[in-house]
Design a protein around this nucleic acid. Structure first.
Lengths: 196, 196
DNA sequence: CCTACCGATCGGTAGG
DNA sequence: CCTACCGATCGGTAGG
């Protein structure tokens, strides 16, 4: 009995978060009201608060859940076989995989995180620095061994993440994104460039 | 006399737009109130409307002004000497130049355009398609002549723009972005990749 | 999960 | 450019 109730409640909560992701993506976090959300879910605005504590708590949940997904995807990257090039290729593939498997949440994650409260904002920023550092290590070791060109690491990292993190925008209604295809093209451009 | 008044008015208007850019960038368009803006400018909220017609009109102005900047920067790209590689390199450099010279406006342009009204939204989208098409042409002709690898043009264009359009985020307080340096690294990665 | 409602704030206007 | 103010809407709570 208890279980049934808890299941119902948590299903509703999942539905609220899911719906919020769609709305935040379409209109942005600030422009989405709790009344919009309640209407889309099909309940009264006040009823939302039986499942979530505040509007910001939803954003918080989305952002930090995505952060976890990204981290766990490349957790074992330093254990992967191959040199810096192979490691970078794998990391890029995994990172893009997380985005493609969470298109809506990714969009919110990348575009709306600045609406977090000051405390979460700091936590979020330091998580991102940590995450990017794992890529930086690969790049740096590749430059030391001579596998990569000696370019400015900061700008290179920046270029790589820019190329990867925008792919949620690549989606067109009815045309699903193929992780392998996109990851392979982006890896190729980053590693080998467009020139023949 | 008339001139003096008009100059004063238009200087205030410029100040309002400039201040709005900063606030939209920091907090986002929706989260910035006209009261925030008035306070930052140093006048009463109602006084804003002597210079601008609405909040959305400010966003409109920023977005379409930036669109013009981008277009005029690569207007003569097909007249430039050199093959597809050289043309792409020049276009990338010009595009990045526009962003670096309008960091605040660029940020708003790329992140807040979806808050435009339905009509402007359509105009904006078609401008972007037109603009990206100019890059697409270069890429396609380069693939035909065998100068570029035959990759999926849509994804390649997408990768290039992602790398270019995120650079406003590269700015750190006190460390100005060097257009030439950034443009050269991004061009290098896009054209020649990271591999030695 | 709902009805009823709170104080705060929103974009914008009237009138001077 | 200001004072005064509009109706609408905001996130959220009380109480059942």
């Amino acid at each position: 009995m208890d279980t049934v109730i808890r299941e119902k409640t948590s299903a509703r909560k999942a539905q609220i978060v899911e719906t919020a992701q769609q709305l935040f993506r379409e209109k942005g976090y600030s422009a989405t009201s709790m009344r919009d959300l309640a209407k889309a879910v099909g309940i009264e605005p006040a009823s939302l608060y039986n499942h979530i504590s505040s509007k910001e708590a939803i954003l918080q949940h989305i952002c930090f859940h995505m952060a976890e997904e990204f981290f766990s995807a490349i957790e074992d990257i330093h254990l992967q076989p191959g040199g810096p090039q192979e490691k970078l290729r794998i990391a890029v593939h995994r990172h893009i995989g997380v985005i493609v498997n969470n298109l809506e949440a990714s969009n919110v994650f990348f575009n709306e995180w600045r609406n977090l409260g000051e405390e979460d904002l700091q936590k979020f920023r330091s998580l991102r620095i940590n995450y990017e550092y794992k890529f930086k290590e690969i790049l740096q070791s590749g430059m030391e061994t001579g596998a990569f060109k000696p370019v400015d690491v900061r700008i290179a990292i920046f270029t790589i993440f820019s190329a990867m993190n925008a792919i949620y925008d690549l989606e067109k209604p009815g045309v699903p994104i193929e992780t392998d295809e996109v990851a392979s093209i982006i890896s190729t451009i980053i590693l080998n460039g467009l020139n023949v």
